Simulated scan of single mutants.
Amino acid sequence: MRHALNRHALVVAATLTLAACASAPPPAPAPPPTPSTAQEGQANLASASGSLVSGRVTLSPMGDGVHLTGTIGGFLPNSVHAIHVHEKGDCTAADASSAGGHFNPTGQPHGKSSAAAHHAGDMDNIVADPQGQANLNIHLAGVSLGGGAANDIAGRALVVHAAADDYTSQPAGNSGARVACAPIKIIR
């Protein structure tokens, strides 16, 4: 009898625990990105790690993020390269290591920008044309330009890498050396 009562008490306790877990509210969604306060930003990419890669990128707030347009040259013809926003707007090191890691204010794993979980600074690879030039037309969702919020990319760095991002290797996609770097500056 005593054994049956103990078993009954365990079943009741387990049932109550499961019921409490089942009725717990789901985790709160991430807060919406803070809107941009700037109208336009610019990143003048300078060569790093002994490369010849350079270019100029314009950043404009658009919808739920920031849109990047511009031209980057000095690549091998038809080559593929990773491009990311990095956490520090410091490109003083010869290999651009002074820019730190990927911009990741929400602590997500690295991944493709279309994946549910990815760094805020993750973008799709860019492809150079037969002349070694890549024309950018990239929308970076979930970030802002200006205002100082956690998702603000002003004052961060735009970094181009020697190889393509594989979108799975942690923490940075196995994209090789940093071949160009620029602080992201607000120009208006």
Rank of each mutant, 00 (worst) to 15 (best):
1 M>S: 15
1 M>C: 14
1 M>A: 14
4 A>S: 02
5 L>Q: 14
6 N>I: 15
6 N>F: 10
7 R>N: 11
12 V>M: 14
16 L>R: 12
18 L>W: 14
20 A>F: 15
23 S>W: 10
25 P>M: 07
27 P>F: 10
28 A>D: 03
30 A>H: 03
32 P>E: 00
36 S>Q: 12
37 T>P: 09
40 E>S: 15
42 Q>Y: 14
43 A>M: 02
49 S>W: 09
49 S>T: 08
50 G>R: 03
54 S>I: 04
55 G>W: 06
58 T>D: 09
59 L>H: 02
66 V>P: 06
67 H>F: 12
69 T>V: 07
70 G>T: 05
71 T>G: 05
75 F>L: 02
76 L>D: 14
78 N>M: 13
80 V>S: 14
82 A>W: 04
85 V>K: 01
86 H>C: 07
87 E>G: 11
88 K>W: 12
91 C>A: 06
96 A>N: 08
99 A>K: 05
100 G>I: 04
104 N>C: 07
107 G>V: 02
112 K>P: 01
115 A>Q: 14
121 G>W: 04
125 N>G: 05
125 N>L: 03
127 V>N: 07
127 V>K: 14
127 V>G: 09
127 V>M: 12
129 D>G: 06
135 N>H: 12
136 L>S: 00
140 L>V: 09
141 A>Y: 04
144 S>H: 04
145 L>A: 01
147 G>S: 04
148 G>I: 11
149 A>E: 06
150 A>D: 06
151 N>F: 01
151 N>V: 09
152 D>K: 01
153 I>Y: 01
157 A>I: 00
159 V>N: 00
162 A>N: 04
162 A>F: 02
167 Y>T: 06
167 Y>F: 08
168 T>F: 08
173 G>M: 05
173 G>Y: 07
173 G>K: 01
174 N>T: 00
178 R>N: 09
178 R>D: 04
180 A>R: 04
184 I>R: 03
187 I>M: 06
